[in-house]
C-alpha cells in the first residue's frame, strides 16, 4: 500500500526563536528523502514536528490526506509513521528481543501475543545484523549496536514511513560503507519511505532519491543530490558567502 506524508508550511517557534519557518516536504513509500543543512538549521525540530513529538506553531501535516499535526507520537506510530532517536533510547532493562517485541506489539502491526512477537523479533534483529545479540540485555550493547537496535525497533513497528535522525554518525569509513549497504538492502526489501536527517554527506549522496536543504529554518534548495550540491545557495550556506568581504 502506498503512503504519502505531506508537511506543508511548517513553522515551529520556541519563545522568540524561530526554529522552523515555513518548510514543506513530501515523503512517500519506497522513496528516500535526505534532509540536510548546517548546524542549528532546524532539521531535528522539523523531524520532531512530523513525528508528533512537537506540535507545529503553524502549518499542517497530513498522511494519505488526513490531518495529523498535533497528534501524539504514539498515534503517529499506530498510523505507520515512526522515528528513531538521535541518541538511541533502548529499554535498558530488557533484552534486544524484548525491545523489538514492544515495538511489534504497540506499533501498527498490533501483534497481541508476546510469544509470537518475541519469535518474530529474531527475524528483524537478523535483518539489522544484531541476531547474535538477540538475548543480550540492551544495556550491554555498544553505541553502534544501540543505533542498530533503534533502527530495528522502528522497523518492527511496521511503519511504512520512517524518520531517521542521524543514524550514520560516528562510523569509521569501513563501517559507514557497510551501514549504507545494509540500509539500502533493508529499505529495498521492506519498501518503506524514509526521511533521513544526516550530517554524513556520503550517506545522503548515495542513498537519497531527493534532498531538501534547510538553513535557519527555511528551505533554501531541493532536488536530486547532484543538483543540490551544485546549487549556489547551498554552497553559500555551507562554505560561507564569497561576498563576505574581509580585508586583511
Amino acid at each position: 500500500m502506498s503512503r504519502t506524508l505531506e508537511a506543508s508550511e511548517i513553522h515551529k517557534y520556541f519563545g522568540g526563536v524561530k526554529a522552523v519557518q515555513g518548510v514543506s516536504l513530501t515523503l512517500e513509500t519506497a522513496r528516500i528523502i535526505g534532509l540536510i543543512g548546517p548546524n542549528g538549521s532546524g532539521k531535528s525540530t522539523l523531524l520532531n514536528v512530523i513525528a508528533g513529538i512537537e506540535k507545529p506553531t503553524k502549518g499542517t501535516v497530513t498522511v494519505d490526506g488526513r490531518r495529523v499535526d498535533g497528534w501524539p507520537a504514539h498515534r503517529m506510530v499506530e498510523l505507520g509513521v515512526a522515528k528513531t532517536h538521535q541518541i538511541p533510547k533502548p529499554f535498558l532493562g530488557m533484552t534486544c528481543r524484548e525491545n523489538v517485541a514492544v515495538a511489534m506489539m504497540y506499533g501498527s502491526r498490533r501483534e497481541g501475543e508476546p510469544a509470537s512477537a518475541l519469535e518474530e523479533s529474531r527475524r528483524i534483529l537478523a535483518m539489522v545484523g544484531l541476531d547474535r545479540r538477540a538475548d543480550a540485555p540492551a544495556s550491554n550493547l555498544t553505541v553502534q549496536e544501540r543505533k542498530r537496535l533503534e533502527f530495528a525497533r522502528v522497523l518492527a513497528t511496521g511503519a511504512g514511513l520512517v524518520l531517521l535522525d542521524e543514524i550514520f554518525a560516528g562510523l569509521s569509513p569501513d563501517e559507514l560503507r557497510d551501514a549504507i549497504a545494509l540500509f539500502a538492502r533493508v529499505q529495498k526489501e521492506q519498501g518503506f519511505g524514509a526521511l533521513v536527517v544526516e550530517h554524513v554527506m556520503r550517506a545522503v549522496m548515495i542513498l537519497s532519491d531527493f534532498v531538501v536543504v534547510i538553513e535557519e529554518g527555511r528551505k533554501i534548495a531541493e532536488g536530486s543530490p547532484k543538483e543540490v550540491v551544485e546549487d549556489p545557495a547551498v554552497i553559500e550556506a555551507y562554505l560561507g558567502s564569497e561576498a563576505t568581504n574581509v580585508t586583511p
Binding site: 507520537a73 506510530v77 532517536h85 515495538a103 504497540y106 501475543e113
Partner: peptide, 22 residues
C-alpha cells in the same frame, strides 16, 4: 502485551511513546 508496554514506560517513557505505547 500490557506488561511489555509498562516495562517500556518504566525504562524510558519517551521511547515507549515513540514506539506506539499510549
Amino acid at each position: 502485551r500490557l506488561g511489555y508496554g509498562i516495562r517500556a514506560i518504566k525504562s524510558d517513557e519517551d521511547a515507549a511513546k515513540s514506539l506506539g505505547v499510549n
